[in-house]
């Protein structure tokens, strides 16, 4: 059984699953639209949590939030199911496929066999679509892959029931009802307001304050943790910013694309200008990554403090620019 489903590659998995499911249902919704309406953009330093033995930093909101907010704002209803028992999880999946209903699944990356080995870490908030079953294998549309792929029932069970932080517990989701017309204009405004609120939040670890907080930590790392660990941490920041499907610059380019698209839909020129500004900020994030990589490239144990202060200052400049930016954005809508 195979559903007539078209796969489109996207930068990020969660946006991608939503955008692909919406397109299947006949709604042309781009990845940036999903990301912007779902208020995916953020900066957050997550205390107490270590990922790959380094601090956890996130450039997007918590897994599942984008879909939840997007659905609510455009007026679609989502059915979500979690399972204790893998057999039950598979049975429910099969039921949906028989009804010609492609579904989104939350999975762990570590046992995802079609991923390059180097990308297989214990990260449990990846998303993909199952759109059919053929010769005992499930047909998979993983939005970050160029083409569709397959997984055996056993392989799929393993990734659906991965353990650790954000364990998926077989999490399956799909839209069940749609309004006659999506509430796009209003949804865009709500999405933008939410992001401005997040980025300007009066909390030390979130938004522009979070960027400043991270800059402060970077200054301390070489002395407090030693150069080796400091470099490992810096590498981790760059990976979070560039590697996990952010579309470049820690999602800033996707956000700029969203603002550009929105300026046309809302007929608001200010958003077009702000899109350009966000692109420039994205470029600054890329410069930061490039300079940080020069530090950890050498893996030397004797790097000077100056270089850490230098990239920390770059982050502080970005924080200042984003603060001004989101204040302007708030006023522009």
């Amino acid at each position: 059984m195979e559903i007539n489903f078209t796969h489109h590659q996207t930068a990020h998995c969660e946006n991608g699953v939503i955008s692909n499911l919406m397109k299947y249902k006949g709604f042309e919704i781009s990845e940036p639209m999903v990301f912007g309406i779902g208020s995916g953009l953020i900066f957050c330093y997550i205390p107490f949590l270590k990922v790959n033995h380094a601090p956890a930093i996130s450039y997007r909101t918590m897994p599942g939030q984008i879909f939840k907010k997007f659905a609510k704002r455009v007026g679609i209803k989502i059915k979500k199911e979690k399972f204790k028992n893998p057999q039950q999880a598979e049975a429910r999946l099969n039921e949906n496929l028989e009804k010609n209903n492609p579904v989104g699944l939350q999975v762990g990356v570590y046992n995802l066999v079609y991923f390059p080995d180097e990308y297989r870490f214990h990260f449990n908030a990846h998303n993909l679509i199952v759109f059919g079953k053929e010769n005992g294998s499930y047909l998979i549309s993983d939005p970050v892959m160029e083409t569709v792929t397959t997984l055996t029932a056993k392989e799929l069970e393993k990734v659906r029931f991965a353990k650790g932080a954000f364990a998926p517990k077989g999490h399956m989701y799909y839209p069940i009802s749609f309004p006659k017309e999506l509430n796009i204009k209003e949804a865009i405004i709500k999405g933008i307001k939410n992001t401005c609120r997040d980025m300007l939040a009066p909390v030390p670890i979130i938004g522009v304050n979070g960027i400043r907080y991270t800059a402060k930590l970077i200054r301390k790392w070489p002395k407090k943790k030693g150069v080796k660990v400091a470099n490992h941490y810096l590498g981790q920041i760059v990976r979070m910013q560039e590697e996990i499907g952010t579309g470049g610059g820690g999602f800033r380019y996707i956000y700029a694309a969203f603002l550009q698209e929105s300026s046309k839909i809302l007929d608001n020129n200010k958003l077009a200008d702000l899109s350009k500004e966000m692109t420039v900020i994205g470029d600054l994030w890329r410069d930061f990554a490039l300079d940080a990589s020069r530090i950890y490239k050498s893996r030397s144990r004797s790097a000077e403090n100056d270089v850490y202060n230098n990239v920390a200052s770059q982050l502080e400049v970005i924080a200042d620019k984003e603060e001004v930016f989101f204040k302007k954005l708030k006023k522009a809508i």
Binding site: N52, E118, E242, E243, A292, S293
Partner: peptide
């Protein structure tokens, strides 16, 4: 390159 190096370092680690 900046991310390739970061990934290579992480794997080395």
């Amino acid at each position: 390159q900046p991310k390739t190096i970061a990934l290579d370092n992480a794997i080395q680690e």
